[in-house]
Nucleic acid binder design. Structure first.
Lengths: 346, 346
DNA sequence: GTTAGCACTCAATGCGCAGGAGTGCTAATA
DNA sequence: TATTAGCACTCCTGCGCATTGAGTGCTAAC
């Protein structure tokens, strides 16, 4: 026995129905559907087959059927069609995205908010990761006795800075000279290796300034690495609308899992290797998300993937719609960011 | 009839009991308590009086009594005693507070985390508000053709920065000169007035650079004002442990109120005028928090109040413990921050 | 003023029963 | 041979009802 055309049609109908209603689908409701000219008995036979094949499950004997993870997998791989965004949905996204581009963190926050508002699921977003960026410019600015500002600028046009201590005898000219040397020597060096390279390559040369160098390098590293594992999260409570989470304990498990953002961070980092990813129910590594699905997309600056965002919802999810929304958002984010660096680079 | 000593003793006992058990307190359980040598009948009479006075409520005729908001108010104002922190609690707080002081946002995040971990309620924290700080230094750093970084440093030692566009013909020397002039002229000027003052006092003088000035001033304003209304939130799901929120709809209301951080932001801003504040149940302005209590504390840098943090819990809250925890945290934060500026100022 | 005793109230719990949605199987039908 | 009508069966769901027990208020005695 195998999955013929009619079985696929029926399976699709069951998934559609279940996604809408959240309750087990009976044979009668399918046979009454537009486009099916089969009696409920025939559907029943087919459903029994689909169950045997592992695409359907029965909560108990006298209930209808619900799709299994395997069914959703089949659905997203072969049966699903994208659902274009309505003008309304586009409008919702647009009204959320108001931040200026140079405030990346807040852009990502708004991305998450827009996604959760438009999908009614939980949304998350990873800010751009700078470690793979390259150094464009480094500048030390004297502030006052004993303090200076160190500013690094990446090839993607973003700046990070930190106030650092400097030796009392260090003058403006020396800082200026150092800025020039560091910029010249370490331009195009990747941000994640710069700290080490500065110390090994300059440590001996500037032996008497070693402590200062160390200081500076540490400050840069702190600002550039995603130390805090930031994940912008929005709409966690959206999940409480769905009958899957009518039970407080279920809700607690889910909310606790997303509140401790480590799980999400790891998932997104893993997904950042892929343009899009869909993880269904039991495919999730995290125990608490075994009856959720996670859909992610990765945005780029130019050719370089920079960060990932996505949504979490019940396995019973509107995959088509969600994918379209993510695709739209990926496109506009990537475009915005890419234009930004093009402009930066002239 | 008035509140004599015995009534107060009984009321305290009922509150203690109810805070522990979350279920209506009967006369028997009080009469059996250590220290009471009264029969349940006597307690019943007293309880009837307390109800008449508005300190107790009865969910239904054959249930015990629960304390009213008025009772809690009385309790925190007159009956409560602080509960010293256990070494364990101090340790929990310490292990959470690991961030460097110059990364204020992450310090506040950790403050909220520590508070929620140690109290098992929901915690929130407002980062320092810079508008009342004074300018110490302003620096324009040339980045490359058409761009510069503007950095402002406050008397409290914190730096904010933004990338701005500059006219193509603007050279490094001009930026340096401008930095010196701006710093000299507007040093000690309050951050919330600086934008306006720069425009009125320099606008004519630097007529040909007016557009640029405007640009710069706007960028500063964006970074300095708490536009994003950031509230660090932690442990929202802690509330789901309490029987008050066994119903998903209750939970949803609470979590939604807390997720849209505006309510919290406003509450904290209002509370920032007070060293400590306790708001009980119906005293809350926000409808969704009418059966929560909010306890806040304000931390300072030197003499200046800088921000506020606090916890939200069910009205049935361990007020004594919570106040002690907040007091401890207020002290250590204020101390840390004050030392920080002392050091900055030499 | 305090307490023992008692009748009363009312939410919570458990049980049984009817209703209904849905199934699988069989036999008839096209 | 595939489809379908029919039917017995399963099992969740909701409802009504009686039972239980914690707690009360009141009265009368101490």
């Amino acid at each position: 026995m195998e999955l013929d055309n009619r079985k696929i049609q029926i399976l699709t109908a069951i998934i559609d129905e279940y996604v809408m209603s959240a309750s087990p689908v009976g044979s009668r409701s399918i046979s009454k559907r537009e486009g099916f000219h089969l009696s409920s008995a025939t559907i029943r036979n087919e459903m029994a087959d689909l169950e045997e094949l592992g695409y359907l499950e029965q909560p108990h004997t006298s209930a209808g059927r619900i799709p299994s993870d395997k069914a959703y997998r089949m659905y997203v791989d072969h049966m699903m069609h994208r659902a274009d965004l309505t003008p309304d949905e586009v409008r919702i996204i647009r009204t959320h995205m108001t931040s200026r581009l140079d405030e990346v963190e807040s852009v990502m926050k708004q991305t998450a908010q827009a996604l959760s508002a438009v999908t009614n699921y939980t949304a998350m977003a990873l800010p751009p990761i700078f470690v793979r960026n390259r150094l464009k410019h480094i500048q030390l600015v004297p502030l006052r006795e004993g303090r200076a500002l160190v500013v690094v600028i990446t090839d993607t046009g973003f700046a990070r800075d930190a106030v650092i201590r400097i030796p009392d005898d260090m003058q403006a000219e020396e800082l200026e000279r150092l800025s020039r040397i560091l910029t010249m020597r370490f331009q195009d060096c990747r941000m994640d290796t710069i700290a080490e390279r500065i110390m090994t390559e300059m440590g001996d040369e500037l032996f008497e300034r070693r402590a200062f160098l160390n200081n500076m390098v540490e400050a840069i590293e702190r600002k550039v690495t995603p130390e805090s594992r930031t994940v912008e999260l929005s709409g966690a409570t959206n999940m409480l609308h769905y009958p899957e989470y009518a039970d407080v304990n279920k809700a607690k498990l889910f909310l606790t899992a997303v509140e401790g953002k480590d799980t999400l961070y790891n998932m997104l980092r893993k997904a950042s290797k892929l343009e899009f990813s869909i993880t269904i129910g039991g495919e999730n590594e995290s125990e608490e998300l075994k009856d959720c699905s996670v859909v992610t997309a990765t945005y780029r600056m130019g050719d370089e993937p920079m960060g990932t965002f996505g949504i979490i919802g019940p396995t019973r999810m509107q995959y088509g719609k969600v994918l379209s929304v993510l695709e739209y958002m990926q496109m506009s984010l990537s475009e915005m960011l890419t234009n930004y660096i093009e402009e930066e680079k002239h």
